[in-house]
Simulated assay, not measured.
Amino acid sequence: MDVSIVAVGKAGRRPEAALAQGYLDRLSFPARIIEVEERRPLSGEERKKREGEKVLAALPANAFVIVLDEHGKQPTSMALSQKLQDWFGFGRPLAFVIGGADGHGAAVLARADATLSLSNLTWPHMLVRVMLAEQIYRAMSIFVGHPYHRE
């Protein structure tokens, strides 16, 4: 089992970075955040394209790619736990992708093996990292029967 969160933007020393990493550090398998950034002032479509190229280049080889997208499925924590079990069963590393402020380019969406939405609400991208890391930890806790998740 191996999980990457490929995210557009640099968290630096922001508190959100420490929170997200704290959840990933609790996992019993390798999990990391890979950050990519496009600093040039570009139009929305060009920015999505350039960020997408960087995201695709950062994906682990042979990864099963789950793109966070507003049109993705919104599973419960229990359902996400089952999905993670299914996805790990493919024997490939998992890579969750968090896009930039303008969303994902077409190439990233085309590469997705699955799409996921954490909420109908719009969240700051740095908080999405924390929320996703926590849900991955929660899903694995459910899977192993740890009392972290209470129904």
Results as ranks from 00 to 15, higher is better:
residue 68 L to V: 13
residue 128 V to Q: 11
residue 81 S to E: 02
residue 127 L to Y: 06
residue 122 T to H: 09
residue 90 F to P: 00
residue 97 V to Y: 01
residue 125 H to Y: 02
residue 93 P to K: 08
residue 129 R to D: 02
residue 90 F to E: 14
residue 120 N to G: 15
residue 100 G to S: 05
residue 132 L to G: 06
residue 133 A to W: 06
residue 95 A to Y: 02
residue 98 I to H: 05
residue 76 T to I: 09
residue 102 D to Y: 15
residue 99 G to V: 10
residue 131 M to P: 02
residue 117 S to V: 00
residue 104 H to I: 10
residue 96 F to P: 12
residue 84 L to S: 01
residue 91 G to T: 10
residue 116 L to Y: 01
residue 87 W to N: 06
residue 97 V to D: 03
residue 64 F to H: 13
residue 80 L to S: 00
residue 98 I to C: 01
residue 94 L to R: 11
residue 110 A to R: 13
residue 59 L to I: 03
residue 106 A to N: 10
residue 100 G to Q: 03
residue 102 D to M: 09
residue 105 G to K: 03
residue 111 R to F: 01
residue 69 D to T: 04
residue 63 A to C: 10
residue 63 A to Q: 04
residue 62 N to A: 13
residue 120 N to W: 06
residue 131 M to I: 14
residue 65 V to H: 00
residue 78 M to T: 12
residue 77 S to E: 04
residue 133 A to S: 13
residue 130 V to S: 02
residue 72 G to L: 05
residue 105 G to L: 09
residue 99 G to Y: 08
residue 97 V to G: 00
residue 75 P to T: 04
residue 102 D to Q: 13
residue 59 L to Y: 08
residue 86 D to K: 12
residue 95 A to M: 09
residue 123 W to E: 04
residue 112 A to S: 04
residue 103 G to L: 10
residue 69 D to N: 04
residue 80 L to G: 00
residue 98 I to P: 00
residue 122 T to A: 08
residue 64 F to W: 12
residue 120 N to V: 06
residue 118 L to P: 01
residue 123 W to G: 03
residue 103 G to S: 11
residue 59 L to D: 02
residue 133 A to N: 07
residue 123 W to V: 03
residue 128 V to N: 09
residue 130 V to C: 02
residue 59 L to K: 04
residue 81 S to K: 02
residue 104 H to Y: 07
residue 58 A to Q: 12
residue 116 L to D: 00
residue 121 L to T: 12
residue 69 D to W: 03
residue 98 I to L: 15
residue 107 A to W: 07
residue 77 S to L: 07
residue 125 H to G: 03
residue 128 V to I: 15
residue 94 L to A: 12
residue 74 Q to F: 00
residue 113 D to P: 03
residue 109 L to P: 10
residue 127 L to V: 11
residue 80 L to I: 01
residue 66 I to Y: 00
residue 62 N to K: 15
residue 108 V to R: 02
residue 94 L to Y: 10
residue 106 A to T: 13
residue 130 V to I: 13
residue 94 L to T: 14
residue 66 I to H: 02
residue 111 R to P: 05
residue 115 T to N: 02
residue 112 A to Q: 06
residue 89 G to L: 08
residue 132 L to Q: 04
residue 99 G to I: 13
residue 94 L to H: 13
residue 77 S to M: 08
residue 111 R to E: 02
residue 90 F to Y: 14
residue 125 H to M: 09
residue 123 W to L: 15
residue 121 L to Y: 13
residue 107 A to E: 15
residue 90 F to M: 12
residue 116 L to T: 01
residue 111 R to M: 06
residue 102 D to A: 14
residue 120 N to H: 14
residue 84 L to P: 00
residue 82 Q to I: 07
residue 123 W to N: 08
